[in-house]
Design a protein around this nucleic acid. Sequence first.
DNA 1: AAAAGCTGTCATGCT
DNA 2: CAAGCATGACAGCTT
Length: 678
Amino acid sequence: SYSFKGFRHIGQRLLHLELSISFLGLSHSLKENENSVLRDELLFLGGPASSAYALSPFSASGGWGRAGQLHPKGRELDAAAQPEGQLLREVRVLGVPFIPRARVDAWLVHSVAAGSADEAHGLLGVAAASSTGGAGASVDGGSQAVQGGGGDPRAARSGPLGAGEEEKAPAEPTAQVADAGGCASEENEVLREKHEAVDHSSQREENEERASARKENSLQQNNDDENKIAEKPDWEAEKTSESRNERHLNGLLASQPENSLEGISLGDIPLPGSISDGMNSSAHSHVNFSQAVSEDVNLHEAILLCPNSTFRRDPIARTSQSREPFLQLNSHTTNPEQTHPGTNVTGFLSPVDNHMRNLTSQDLLYDLDVNIFDEINLMSLATEDNFDPIDVSQLFDEPDSDSGLSLDSSHNSTSVIKFNSSHSVCDEGAIGYCTDRDSSSHHDLEGAVGGYYPEPSKLCHLDQSDSGFHGNLTFQHIFHNHTYHLQPSAPESTSEPFPWPGKSQKIRSRYLEDTDRNLSRDEWSAKALRIPFSVDEIVGMPVDSFNSMLSRYYLTDLQVSLIRDIRRRGKNKVAAQNCRKRKLDIILNLEDDVCNLQAKKETLKREQAQCNKAINIMKQKLHDLYHDIFSRLRDDQGRPVNPNHYALQCTHDGSILIVPKELVASGHKKETQKGKRK
DNA sequence: AAAAGCTGTCATGCT
DNA sequence: CAAGCATGACAGCTT
């Protein structure tokens, strides 16, 4: 979006700045606000990395950091690593603005030094004008970011993001930076000169050309917009969101006046219609940006900060149902009561009413907003760092779900519509999705795949007819070329709603990056389908709660199928883990048993040896006793009894007899024979 | 580069 | 009959 905010330390003070880029008639503002903590502002600016600075207000010096600085949350801001045209999509990733181009720094310095509202406005005008200018060599970095960061759907959709769009965008002469800056201080002059020295040579000519082109484009675009809107009230059935977005963004950009800082006051920013050469529709609207600055608003709110007359869809469409979840979503707002009075925020979440045919430029702006948000959300869904929209297209182009659901054209529309209906509900979550697992301020978002897990009681059910308007607009550009055709003979289990990133090496590497962040396959798919539940919830929930949850939420067949697949796989995964654990336990127990038995065997062996030893000892003692007894025995003739011929035999009555061994042997034989007979 | 291990998933049978 | 569990088999990835 279309504005950035930031702060920097001035001594002990924390100067809070907001530079709001114009957007389809919305003005730009600069707001100074001390001691405001601007965190998690979902502002972003992107642009071609070759010329972009990724500036972070969280730099250690309190000033504006540049690409490559380590964000306090641990993320490396590396704009230079972005390929040419690749946007710095850090929305929701860092929650900090990326401000391309170093001139912003000069403006900020200027504004700090100037310290007056007028000068601030002058600076603002510079920033805004240059931003809307689009492709200035250095100043337009912000504008490129605006376009690329979602302001221009073309940039967001076409190939390398933002590439090739520079030349089309109108430009603002660099000279205006100094001129509009008003009475800049010496410091600012130095900085400004320094910056100009860097890119002055080619900048002026380029910007002049683009300025003229922008003017022409502005007039033409405004006329086109008005004509097209007037001529084709049913444009929604004929135009794609892409073309609309292009048109309106062009109109927006073109409508920005070069002297747009006039009439802007702190906290009460008139829409640029009063200062623009067109876009009268929003000329009488005012935006109080002071609240937007001081409050902890998110990107959606920041962008949607607009008066009723500008963005209101239809007051009737604002329902308590739609408002409630939204307010809940913004529960982190520091002062909810001050949240954009007069701003029909819920109008953006509310269903489309029956007055859709009477679309105005504000309507289109709204659509553009939604589209952009969807773009942003989708882009940031997959990967934050090296996201490549081509991959997204690949993802959406690959075959259908393992549940056999198809995303063919007919099904697509339905899915898209429903899709967006849930998306509307979960918009905040999608936008405010926080990948920072340490962020406690977004605890309500954690765990939810889609970034937001609304309470079922507060869920807003949207009719398909209501959401169809946006659905077709917001996701057609995502799904429009997919080839989800269910093959009747195709095996049901070989495909998925969003193919698992293991089929292409490039995506696999992405997946591996994701897995490094503990993003599983199902989480990945659930994100892609914007399923508003976390995988853990889907898997761990009791079946009754699960079914009731599915019935309460308005989900597409695809989503339901994916959710059931996720639950099935999750259950089975746990079962497999338990099974393996049991198997391992069994193996370990068996190994323990083996060890125990081996130990027991050794013990028994030792005992046996000891017994044998004892037996031998006893035998020896018995032998000795035998010889001792026979040595003392004498026969009738007084001769010693030979122990080899006689044996001692005990009788039952305890008496001991000396029996010849022949008789003993025969007696044993008889006893054994008797025993056998018995 | 091969082998073993780990993990997720599917199919299937059972409860 | 739906849902879940258990488990063998397989594939992909890691070690």
